[in-house]
Design a protein around this nucleic acid. Sequence first.
DNA 1: GTATTTATTGAACGGTCGTTGAAGTTTAAT
DNA 2: ATTAAACTTCAACGACCGTTCAATAAATAC
Lengths: 219, 219
Amino acid sequence: MARSKRTTREKLLDAAEKLFARRGFHGTSLRDITGEAGVDLALVNYHFGGKKPLFAEVLERRGAVLNEERLRRLAEVRRSAAPRPASTEAVVGAFFDPILDFLAHAGPGWHSYFTLLAWVNNSPEWGRRLMSKTFNDTVREFIRALMQSLPDAAPEDVFWGYNFLTGALTLSLAETGRLDILSDGLCRSTDVAALKARLGPFVAAGLKGLAQRKALRDG
Amino acid sequence: MARSKRTTREKLLDAAEKLFARRGFHGTSLRDITGEAGVDLALVNYHFGGKKPLFAEVLERRGAVLNEERLRRLAEVRRSAAPRPASTEAVVGAFFDPILDFLAHAGPGWHSYFTLLAWVNNSPEWGRRLMSKTFNDTVREFIRALMQSLPDAAPEDVFWGYNFLTGALTLSLAETGRLDILSDGLCRSTDVAALKARLGPFVAAGLKGLAQRKALRDG
DNA sequence: GTATTTATTGAACGGTCGTTGAAGTTTAAT
DNA sequence: ATTAAACTTCAACGACCGTTCAATAAATAC
């Protein structure tokens, strides 16, 4: 029964991922989800124990995969830079590229997942705690790498810089379509290649600017 | 009766602003709002015609004030730099500082409002259209000023840069508390002064980095 | 093949949702 | 003071919410 069990669970997770990303937690009903998944309403509570645990499972399912890939790339850029610390550009690349590559080459599930991540990250609700639980260990490792790449920066500047970095990332992942409107169609929110070409340079330059601000202040 | 009418309307707008910011549109009921405001449930439909129109009014009420202050400061920095274009730092300052100053010195209503703005900006829901309607004219003016301050930058780079800029801002306004956790208390999400000291330099450096990338590519 | 666990179904529960309309109250105009 | 308009109250509507449970079906173990 392991096969059919997995299938129903996955149907529910996929449908929930898609709809939660589109309309948020409170805006999506279990009937929406089970309808989209084509399974009975009661199966959500049977397999997950409720709406919130389902949401948590959606968030964590791909989180482990993303963390693994990020840490793999971080180790890679560290190895090729050794014995010097990896450059700021390389570290932010290791942070962004897994997401952007999944977006460009993996299935639509990843797309919904990142939209959902953007939603949860900027919402003041309980779901944020799940995000911290899933991602903080990996994020701390990246912040450490950023500090090593910016020896002149104050730790506070790197923490704040990470905050700006993830803000720029999550708004881009949300694909609000405002970019399209403001640029009269010149740029497209969904253009992953354009995003990939610019997000890294912007953030790396911003971090270095913060570090320089500190160095200037110290004289 | 104009007096008492205004009072009830404002009570409702203030309560809605606070609760929408905290729990989002779908997570807040009209009974929550009218309870917080201390008025009868039916008054929402009497004064605003429904839940969505109430939400729209909350979003637009302070939007006009913010736009006015932003354009005022933009004109100011342009005037003091004339006949040269205003610097990138000055333009992003004119964009950020009204928010940060309102946050630091105006009432708690503004605080809720910006949290709500952060929520709406990153959500894929219908509310985003209201944001575009309220802010796009002002934003276009700022993008124009950014382009003038960065004559070497491609327009696409400035549009994408604005996207990153507003992402960094909105995540900071959301005050998710993740900064506090990641930094073990060294930094605080609610520290407006620390944010103000860093957001401008980060973004200005990022924009210049994007422009430089373009210049380098052109040789 | 029988027993046992695992999975699915369908109906229903109490509760809350946004909205409405009729009745009542307060304020403004004449 | 009387009429008209604006505002408030109260009760209720139908719809939808997440969750539960006894039943049935399917898959596995013995």
